[in-house]
C-alpha cells in the first residue's frame, strides 16, 4: 500500500482551493448540524420528558409518550427523507427551507425522543418524597420541577446525555443522503474524484473521532463542575447506535 497524502493539497476545482480546505469546511458543516440539532433536541427532550411525568395531566402524558414513540420507531434516514421530500409537499411554506435546516430539524426531533426517554427515567428515578417535600413547602408544580426535580434529574442523566451528544455527531453523517456537504458526503465525493479512498476515509474518520473525544472531555469537565458534593450517582448501561 502506498500512501498519497499530497491529494489534500491539490485543487479540486470549484469553490475550494484545496481538498484540505474542503475537508475543513465539511467538518464545519458536521459540527454546525450537530450543535444546532443538539440544542433543539435538548430543548424538546427536556420538555417532552417532563410532560410525561406530570401528575394529573393524562393528556400531556399521552402526547409526550406518543411523541417519543413516533420519533424513536422510524429510522433516522427515513425521517430525513420525510422532512426533505414529504413535509414540504404537504406544507408548501416549508419549501423555502434549505436542506441544512431540514436536516437539523430531523436530527433534532429524532434525538429529542431519545433525550426525553432519559429525562423521563431520570425524573422517575428520584424518590417521590422530593416532589412531595417541594409541594409541602408551598411550591407550585412548575416551581417544584424548576427548583427541585429537574436540577437533580439533570445531574442523574448527565452520563447518558453525554453519550447522546456523541451520538448526534455520528448520526449527523446521515445528512449526506440529502446532499448537505458534511464529512460523509465529502468522503463519498472525494473518494470518487481522487480514487484515494483510504486517505480520504482516514481523514474523515479521524475528524469524527476527534469531535467525539472533544465532547467527552468537555462534558467530563462540566460533570465535575456541577456535581453535588457527597452524592454518589448510579452509572449508565450500554446500548444505542
Amino acid at each position: 500500500m502506498n500512501w498519497d497524502w499530497e491529494i489534500f493539497f491539490q485543487d479540486p476545482g470549484g469553490q475550494h482551493t484545496t481538498y484540505l480546505e474542503w475537508l475543513m469546511s465539511a467538518w464545519g458543516w458536521t459540527l454546525s448540524v450537530s450543535l444546532l440539532a443538539l440544542l433543539l433536541a435538548l430543548l424538546m427532550g427536556f420538555m417532552i420528558g417532563t410532560l410525561r411525568t406530570l401528575p394529573k395531566h393524562p393528556g400531556w402524558v399521552l402526547f409526550g409518550t406518543g411523541w417519543t414513540e413516533l420519533f424513536r420507531n422510524i429510522p433516522l434516514l427515513l425521517q430525513i427523507f420525510l422532512w426533505y421530500h414529504v413535509i414540504p409537499a404537504l406544507v408548501p411554506p416549508l419549501k423555502e427551507l434549505s436542506g441544512f435546516v431540514l436536516v437539523v430539524l430531523a436530527l433534532g426531533f429524532f434525538t429529542s425522543a431519545r433525550i426525553s426517554e432519559q429525562v423521563y427515567s431520570g425524573i422517575r428515578a428520584l424518590p417521590k418524597g422530593q416532589f412531595y417535600a417541594a409541594q409541602a413547602l408551598g411550591m407550585t408544580t412548575w416551581q417544584s420541577y424548576r427548583y427541585v426535580i429537574l436540577p437533580r434529574a439533570g445531574r442523574i442523566i448527565l452520563p447518558p446525555l453525554v453519550n447522546e451528544m456523541m451520538s448526534i455527531v455520528k448520526n449527523s453523517s446521515v445528512a449526506f443522503a440529502v446532499s448537505v456537504s458534511e464529512l460523509t458526503l465529502f468522503a463519498l465525493q472525494v473518494q470518487e474524484e481522487t480514487a484515494r479512498g483510504v486517505e480520504v476515509y482516514l481523514a474523515v474518520t479521524g475528524l469524527y473521532v476527534v469531535s467525539a473525544l472533544a465532547i467527552n472531555l468537555l462534558m467530563g469537565q462540566i460533570e465535575r463542575r456541577v456535581q453535588i458534593p457527597g452524592l454518589v450517582l448510579p452509572g449508565a448501561t450500554g446500548g444505542g447506535h
Partner: peptide
C-alpha cells in the same frame, strides 16, 4: 471503542472500500 466512535455510515463505506 474504535467502532463505537465512528458513524455506522462511515463503517459501511470503509468495509465496502477495504
Amino acid at each position: 471503542n474504535g467502532m463505537r466512535s465512528i458513524p455506522l455510515v462511515m463503517v459501511i463505506l470503509w468495509f465496502f472500500l477495504l
